[in-house]
Amino acid sequence: MTRGCERGLTWIKPSFVWMRYRCGWGTKEGQETVLAVEITREGFEWALAHACLSHYEHGLHADRATWRRQLKRAPSRVQWDPERDLLLRPLPHRSLQLGLADEAARLYADEWTVRITDVTPLAHTIHEHVREGDLDAARQLLPHEHPYPTQDGSLAHLHR
Rank of each mutant, 00 (worst) to 15 (best):
M1Q: 06
M1V: 04
T2R: 11
G4T: 07
G4F: 09
E6K: 13
R7E: 15
T10L: 06
W11L: 06
I12K: 05
I12F: 14
K13M: 10
P14L: 00
S15T: 05
F16W: 09
V17A: 11
V17H: 01
M19G: 06
R20T: 02
Y21G: 01
R22L: 07
R22E: 14
R22G: 05
C23Q: 04
G24A: 11
G24C: 05
W25E: 08
T27D: 04
T27C: 03
Q31K: 11
Q31L: 15
Q31W: 14
T33Y: 00
V34L: 10
L35R: 00
L35D: 00
L35E: 03
A36N: 08
V37D: 02
E38Q: 07
I39P: 01
I39S: 07
I39R: 02
T40I: 08
T40V: 07
E42A: 13
W46H: 10
W46F: 06
A47K: 10
A47R: 13
L48V: 10
H50T: 11
C52D: 11
L53W: 11
L53F: 09
E57W: 15
H58C: 11
G59E: 13
L60D: 06
A62R: 15
R64K: 15
A65V: 09
T66P: 03
W67V: 08
Q70H: 15
R73H: 12
A74G: 02
S76H: 08
R77S: 07
R77C: 08
V78D: 02
Q79C: 12
W80D: 05
E83Y: 11
E83L: 15
E83H: 15
D85I: 07
L86T: 04
L86D: 10
L87E: 13
R89I: 03
P90T: 10
L91K: 13
P92G: 08
R94T: 06
S95G: 13
L96A: 08
G99V: 08
G99K: 09
L100D: 06
L100Y: 05
L100H: 01
A101Y: 04
D102K: 15
D102S: 11
E103M: 06
E103S: 10
Y108E: 05
A109K: 13
E111Y: 03
E111L: 11
T113G: 06
T113H: 07
V114K: 11
V114A: 10
V114I: 14
T117L: 05
D118T: 02
D118W: 01
V119F: 00
T120G: 00
P121E: 02
H124N: 03
I126V: 14
I126N: 00
I126Y: 02
H127Q: 07
H127V: 03
E128S: 15
E128K: 12
H129R: 12
H129K: 13
V130Y: 03
R131T: 11
R131W: 03
R131H: 06
G133M: 07
D134V: 05
D134G: 03
L135R: 05
D136V: 13
D136R: 12
A137P: 04
Q140D: 08
Q140T: 01
Q140V: 00
L141Y: 00
L141G: 01
L142R: 03
P143W: 07
H144P: 05
E145D: 08
E145Q: 14
P147D: 12
Y148M: 09
P149L: 04
P149M: 08
T150I: 14
T150S: 14
D152F: 13
D152I: 04
D152L: 14
G153L: 05
S154T: 07
L155D: 11
H157P: 09
L158Y: 11
H159E: 12
H159R: 15
